[in-house]
């Protein structure tokens, strides 16, 4: 589904990704781990199409197409979802409005009719209940005054509503207490399916106790230096990132 080859990307002239390659197939869950500054978030933003990041070389294929040619909204409509590490607050735009606009943008792209208002509300309420979110959140400004945990749940809610093919979750576990972590993990697990791929970007292996990955990759200095199954995450937790760096340099 996603095929990244020898990707180099820079922001403000600083090269962050230095020859990253990664292949993610449908139905798979991949975890990208790595120390701060290793390029995890950059990878997530490059997949979503942030214009501040400049891809200097390499390729990203998504379902056989060149992903890098597409604008962020086109990628979203094609089924790519980015769960932000720091979701932005948008005062004055309420959550329900955003959700509906996003759902309809995708449906229109797929040649479907707009979602019926009643059906939309019903669906949104169901998904919110599953995530333990108060339906009142629908009428609040997007992420406006939300706590860290509420913002992350809101990201998962959007993902649940948009039913992406490829979900990239950037540090979705950071700043969550255990209950919020479980709720978020359940939300992600509920979306696991043979047609869908999920990429978890995380610093700690804690999240992986709740969402079991098929593959684990360790990122260091803009490159994947090690890949393995879920046991790699445990080994990493035990030995620390220093171990990876040494292994990479060896």
């Amino acid at each position: 589904m996603l095929d990244i080859k020898d990707l180099h990307a820079a922001i403000g002239g600083n090269e962050i990704l230095r020859g990253l390659s990664l292949a993610v197939g449908a139905g798979e869950v991949h975890a990208i781990m790595g120390p701060n500054g290793s390029g995890k978030s950059t990878l997530a933003q490059v997949i979503a199409g942030h214009e501040d990041y400049e891809v200097t070389s390499g390729s990203v294929q998504y379902e056989g197409r060149d992903l890098l040619e597409l604008a962020p909204e086109e990628r979203a409509r094609e089924g790519i979802f980015l769960g932000f590490q720091y979701p932005v607050e948008i005062p004055g735009v309420n959550n329900a409005y955003l959700l509906k606009a996003a759902v309809n943008a995708k449906r229109q792209h797929e040649g479907k009719d707009e979602i019926d208002a009643f059906e939309f509300l019903k669906l949104a309420r169901e998904k919110m209940a599953a995530l333990g979110m108060d339906p009142k959140f629908l009428n609040r400004g997007v992420n406006e005054g939300f706590s860290g945990g509420e913002k992350k749940r809101n990201e998962i809610l959007q993902m649940a509503m948009l039913e992406p093919k490829l979900a990239v979750l950037d540090e979705t576990d950071s700043g969550l207490d255990i209950d919020a972590l479980k709720a978020v993990a359940e939300g992600v697990n509920a979306l696991r399916s043979p047609e869908r791929a999920i990429v978890l970007v995380t610093h700690y292996q804690r999240l992986l106790d709740y969402i079991e990955p098929d593959r684990v990759h360790v990122l260091s200095e803009g490159r994947i230096v090690r890949s393995g199954d879920k046991s790699l995450a445990l080994e990493l937790e035990e030995k620390g990132y220093e171990w990876v760096r040494e292994a990479a340099n060896a």
Binding site: A48, H50, V88, I90, G92, Y97, L98, A105, H109, L162
Partner: peptide
């Protein structure tokens, strides 16, 4: 706010529409 524009775009909302939404929101408050 460029960040808000980008956020809306990652949710599939086109640039022009996103601008309109944010402009209206600015006045709506």
């Amino acid at each position: 706010d460029e960040r808000a524009l980008y956020y809306l775009r990652t949710r599939g909302i086109g640039r022009q529409r996103a601008r309109r939404i944010l402009t209206r929101a600015f006045a709506a408050t």
